[in-house]
């Protein structure tokens, strides 16, 4: 065990992804081709973008359970406005404005009213979905109207043979990485996540930083929503009720961003996303039944967490704080 003692969860998960890739490459003809690998990354790029948003919030010792609902409702509303004759830019601006406003309310509830993030965002997710379905539109799948067609390039276009969602995933990763690494707010965010009291004593603007982190998460969520809508020319608001938000949390935690905050970065999200991508792609090629796929996915994820617990036992800090 000692030899592996210094491996982090990120490295373990990356190792698992590489092992699976090698396994699939040897056994599945057509797995290790450029086209399939591009397709693999494209299929999880939306999950990855949402993972970056969630990862950022988790690093700040929060969680955003309203992420998927907000993404679905704000983008669906923008599509509805565009279909109703608003110019595309105005429809998008209103959708984005709605998304940011909700993010701000989330942050305010958590930072100033001091409601635990898990409850504030859980309630917010349900509230937004209900609000959207009742006041904004009546159908649960909204199609892209003709004047919104320019958006399609975001989801279905490609440049130098690489699909557009991959570029967007990469761009979101890069910007978030730069934000966390080089801006004062980014460093404050990590400090707040690591230890809120210490950050406050050292003079970091703790509450505004918390509000900011939820606004950034809703901004990135809106981008993910646009990619979703663009790639299938419609927005399915039912995803708000699906288990997608847990898949997103899974990607984050699997990649090694601890739920106790302050640890990890964008790279962890990328690694978690890749493992899920390799798994899904391989299982689809093997034509494994959907329900069996869920079992295999669950077992592999559990295995990753068990290995991590064995190799990296809980230290005193996590034992005291708990994981969430």
């Amino acid at each position: 065990m000692r030899v592996f003692g210094r491996l982090s969860q990120e490295q373990i998960v990356f190792g698992l992804a590489v092992l699976l890739t090698i396994g699939f490459a040897l056994t599945l003809p057509g797995f290790l081709t450029a086209n399939n690998l591009l397709n693999l990354v494209r299929s999880v790029s939306i999950l990855g973008i949402l993972g970056v948003a969630m990862g950022l919030v988790v690093i700040g010792r929060g969680i955003d359970l309203s992420l998927v609902a907000l993404m679905a409702i704000s983008v669906a509303w923008a599509l509805q406005l565009a279909a109703g004759g608003y110019p595309l830019w105005l429809a998008l601006a209103l959708g984005l404005g709605f998304s940011l406003a909700v993010g701000m309310i989330n942050g305010w509830l958590i930072a100033y009213v001091e409601i635990p993030a898990i409850f504030a965002t859980l309630a917010m997710g349900a509230a937004i979905y209900g609000f959207g379905r009742y006041f904004m539109f009546s159908l649960d799948v909204l199609y892209m109207s003709d004047n919104a067609r320019p958006l399609e390039a975001l989801g279905q276009g490609s440049l130098f043979g690489v699909p557009a969602p991959i570029y967007l995933f990469a761009a979101v990763c890069l910007v978030t990485y730069l934000f966390l690494r080089y801006t004062a707010q980014g460093r404050y965010l990590r400090a707040v996540g690591d230890n809120l009291q210490t950050a406050r004593i050292t003079g970091a603007p703790v509450r505004p930083i918390i509000v900011l982190q939820y606004m950034i998460s809703s901004l990135i969520g809106f981008v993910a929503g646009l990619v979703t809508a663009a790639s299938v020319a419609s927005m399915n608001t039912r995803v708000a009720n699906s288990t997608m938000v847990y898949d997103v949390i899974l990607v984050v935690v699997l990649g090694g961003i601890g739920l106790s905050g302050g640890r990890g970065g964008v790279r962890n999200v990328v690694v978690g996303t890749l493992l899920i991508g390799v798994l899904l792609n391989g299982m689809t090629i093997m034509d494994i039944q959907y329900t069996v796929q869920n079992v295999i996915k669950g077992v592999i994820l559990l295995a990753a967490i068990v290995i991590d617990t064995l190799l990296n036992p809980r230290d005193e800090q996590t034992a005291q704080q708990g994981d969430i």
């Binding site: 397709n39 399915n236 792609n281 689809t284």
Partner: peptide
Amino acid sequence: DATKAKNIAATVIQ
């Protein structure tokens, strides 16, 4: 769900 259907179809065609 359209997104899942798309991912499945893309892999199968591939």
